[in-house]
Design a protein around this nucleic acid. Structure first.
Lengths: 152, 152
DNA sequence: ACCATCTAGTCAGATGAGCTGACCGTTCGT
DNA sequence: ACGAACGGTCAGCTCATCTGACTAGATGGT
């Protein structure tokens, strides 16, 4: 990679903002693809919550904490996901106060589509940047997460 | 996001999601810093609009297009920014239909603080990643923007 | 010059996403 | 066994965002 390709000072952008573009692009592509596949009642916020549901189910409080929203917000998003058939609530066998939010049939189908779309977009990005630069980018972002994501 | 038949590393995350953490962290830090400096009536959405106002002023329609929101949304955000004294609307001398949204005194003061905070956070990230890796990261993100930002 | 059309921006109304604060039932440590 | 902590819901609010319909000014073809 030629060093002369580095942006001039006037073009130099805030690193946070630079991170925003790929994130927004990925989210938009996945949401559009899901809609095209018939999952057209999903919103970005629902997706962000749903993406954090573990294989065995996850408590509402944990979802809220990881997504950095209040439990009320998480609760209403889960309600809407339940209404649309993506997830279900089951009692937590280990704690009678709690319930686990778990993927339902439709949710699993949507996740499969989302994974495929995600891989598709990453492949495009890799084609643009090159294999090696992409791997380096992923490594840097993963390290950066250590200081930017409080809930790893 | 954990179950997949693919034998993928469990730590390996969607590149889009990996981009999300730094973006969110940067935005939160800048907003918190601005609030601490007395600019405590700014919301994230107002900030995203305000960040796109050019030195000579920018039309509402252009702000909306760049921020990927409708002009109605941009309009109401600008209204609130005007109310709080951050920006002002002046007639566009070249088109009587249009008005330019321009930074006001308080807006310029806030921008100065935001720039300082931004540099501060980037310095922390650089300390964590190292000079060279940070430069490489910036270069990769800048190139990635070519395919992820429709309004460059 | 005229009219059709385009563009800049606003008005009205709806909904989603997020918050704070108050509350109830369950669990757990001492 | 009891009080503090935890899991979750209810109520009520604000802000951000959308779609659709509209007005005023600009522009271009005949």
């Amino acid at each position: 990679m030629a060093e002369s390709d580095l942006p001039s000072d006037s073009e130099r952008q805030n690193l946070g903002l630079l991170c925003f573009y790929p994130y927004r692009a990925m989210e938009a592509r996945i949401l559009a693809g899901l809609a095209a596949a018939g999952f057209d009642d999903l919103t970005p916020a629902q997706g962000r919550i749903a993406a954090r549901i573990g294989p065995a189910g996850t408590r509402l409080t944990d979802l809220a904490e990881q997504a950095l929203v209040t439990k009320q917000t998480a609760g209403s998003l889960v309600d809407s996901l339940v209404r649309c058939g993506y997830v279900e609530r089951v009692p937590d066998p280990t704690d009678a106060r709690a319930r686990l939010v778990r993927m339902a049939e439709r949710g699993r189908a949507a996740v499969a589509v989302a994974r495929r779309l995600e891989a598709e977009v990453e492949a495009e990005w890799t084609a643009h940047l090159g294999e090696e630069a992409t791997a380096t980018l992923r490594a840097a972002l993963t390290r950066l997460r250590e200081v930017t994501d409080p809930y790893r």
